[in-house]
Amino acid sequence: MNIKERVRSLLKEAELYKDQRLLKEARKKYTDVIEILEQQSRIQNRDALIAAVEKKRDSLDTAIIKWDQSRVNPEVSGKVQNLIKRLFTASEEGISDEENGINEAITLAKFGQYRQALEEFSRLVHLPIVCASAAKNAIKCYLELSESDECIEAVKGWWQDCCFTPEQYASITHFMQSAFEKSGLDLGDAMAEPQVGFAGGEDFTAPIDDDIIDITSIGINFQSGPMEGQHVEIDVSFQSGSLLSLIVASSEKALLQLLLKGTAIHDVDFYSPIAIFKGAAVVESNTGILSGPKKGDFSLDIRINSI
């Protein structure tokens, strides 16, 4: 293929990729053309040709930047939001309308529809059966929308409107403290301290059943120590409520050293058949297996603390 044919073929390819909205692939072909032309000194109007192709490539660059910067989950129309709620909220028998309302609003938030979800959570905060769950989810939405000041005002307003019991308010402000910290924000003493004791430690955003869902495996994300930055997945061999039994091979010496009895695991992915849940756990036992096909390996029991 001579140069002219080669250039023509590459340009044709580039145009086709552009039509297919394969922008990066099209850009690559234009770049190939420019490089070929730059090596040819005998082509008439070479500089004009290069300039023309560069112009096409620049226009692609603009489109690529625009695409890269476009929001992943922009707010969509109410019609689409209703469809999202209808199609992606798990139908559960025996739950109240209020709880279903929470589930629908959570679905919206999962699809990045924070403004509408916030509107729905703010309405649900006034219903006693779901007020605490609605408030916590609303706090998350406010933070996703970078509206921390509005969040503080809203929670204070709900408290003044007597939406919560003192225990619920304590739980919500504790959750808020943690959520603000995770977003790199300082809540300071913006929230009034309730006059009740609160054990703390609650860190979930969705209403969860009393029974812990089946967990098929867990993923531990090590944030410090010798395995810092590593993610280790382990299958669950047996589950009894929130107690999970795992088998770890004796060859995993570093892992076994980090999972000694009493160790708190702060960042765990719990894999279930329906979703992955983030949470924390504590190692309740770590014992060597003395007989059977897994002899020499280790049996670990870990207790789910939060999910």
Binding site: L22, E25, V72, K110, F111
Partner: peptide, 26 residues
């Protein structure tokens, strides 16, 4: 960039059609 949405949509599926692009560059 839509990986989290993709996962949400996939939930509860009963069958899949995997559409592959025949273009060599893909």
């Amino acid at each position: 960039k839509y990986s989290s949405t993709r996962k949400l949509v996939l939930k509860g599926l009963d069958g899949v059609v995997f559409v592959a692009d025949s273009l060599a560059v893909r």
